[in-house]
Design a protein around this nucleic acid. Structure first.
Length: 329
DNA sequence: AGCACA
């Protein structure tokens, strides 16, 4: 039987009973100068977040053997990004870099708006539900508004095997890049201990030092006078909620039999609740819930994110800020 | 992965 929001733990802190549930997210679409600290800051406010790891893999300029346009498009249609990612990385690390370079990582980057695929991250949560909630909140957000990189987040194929070591920080860095390609980053000193997903156990003081170096470097490239503070502000807003805050919420992933009454029962428990509208656009219903204040809407969104209603038949609600405030009656 | 109402 579906759990109702009333018995739902708002803090997402219960570990999963089922060990097979995935509680790790796979994050791609990161700019290649991303720092582990940034990944940590991206997820740290998400309920149930445990830790994350940043993984460098392969070479900077990976290429694979010739693929026809048709094959590439079919491949893309049939498989998700992660499959292509692993295909490319496995084929690029076998010393085939001298073959005809017709399809590089950059091509993927163009198609899935992202600037590089040689760095990915894994974010681990205390349970499956909180991982899903964070994925919904952050998938597709602009990670770097200036460069235009867009995050692509999906469930990892498997959970991070190793818990972070007691002594290590809230994030770890795994560097599996080959020595030859380490010219773009200055992290070749700490080599990964294997080619698996196992963290290399980099200390977080070590990572912080690298971060400082890279930050200083990139700041000299950009103009630090006006553009950087503005960009930081925008980044904060962009990644924090994944959308512009609004006092109206958009609620999706409702079951086909969801009723206005049922949803209103839940929403009216919250202060500032104004009104609810349900619309069935073709298939599944979606709802718009209006509140007096943005903060009140935010509270409801975080509280009810991924919650199941009695009528839910496909997982919990997906709640976002609506793109525009509900009109007054 | 889906955003209307006027």
């Amino acid at each position: 039987m579906a759990r109702s929001p009333y018995e739902y733990d708002p803090y997402y802190l219960q570990p999963d009973q089922d060990r097979n549930l995935i509680n790790t997210l796979f994050v791609s679409g990161l700019p290649d100068d991303v720092k582990a600290r940034e990944i940590h800051n991206l997820f740290r406010r998400r309920a149930g977040f445990d830790y994350c790891q940043l993984k460098y893999t392969g070479r900077g300029n990976q290429v694979i053997k010739h693929l026809s346009f048709f094959f590439r498009e079919s491949f893309y249609f049939l498989f998700g990004f992660r499959e292509i990612y692993s295909f490319v990385t496995t084929h690029c690390n076998k010393g085939q870099e001298h073959e005809a370079p017709t399809w590089g990582i950059g091509d993927i980057g163009e198609r899935l708006p992202m600037s590089g695929a040689e760095v990915v991250a894994f974010a681990t949560f205390l349970n499956h539900q909180s991982a899903i909630a964070a994925m919904h909140a952050l998938n597709g957000v602009k990670f770097d508004p200036q460069a235009g990189s867009v995050l692509h987040i999906e469930l990892a194929r498997s959970n991070s095997r190793r818990k972070r070591k007691p002594g290590s920080g809230p994030y770890v860095v795994i560097d599996n890049r080959t020595k030859a390609s380490a010219n773009t980053q200055e992290t070749s000193s700490d080599d990964g201990d294997s080619d698996t997903e196992e963290p290399s156990g980099a200390e977080d003081a070590d990572a912080s030092n690298k971060d400082e170096l890279k930050t200083a470097k990139s700041d000299t490239v950009q103009d630090p006078e006006n553009s950087v503070p503005a960009a930081n502000e925008q980044l904060e807003r962009t990644i924090d909620e994944g959308a512009q805050a609004c006092s109206t919420l958009f609620i999706a992933n409702l079951g086909p039999n969801c009723t206005e009454y049922e949803l209103k029962q839940v929403l009216s428990e919250y202060p500032g609740f104004n009104m609810l509208k349900i619309r069935a656009k073709g298939g599944m219903p979606v709802a718009f819930a209006d509140f007096e204040q943005v903060e009140q809407a935010t509270k409801v969104m975080t509280d009810l994110q991924s919650c199941l209603l009695p009528s839910s038949d496909r997982g919990g609600m997906h709640i976002e800020y609506a793109r525009s405030k509900m009109r007054k009656p």
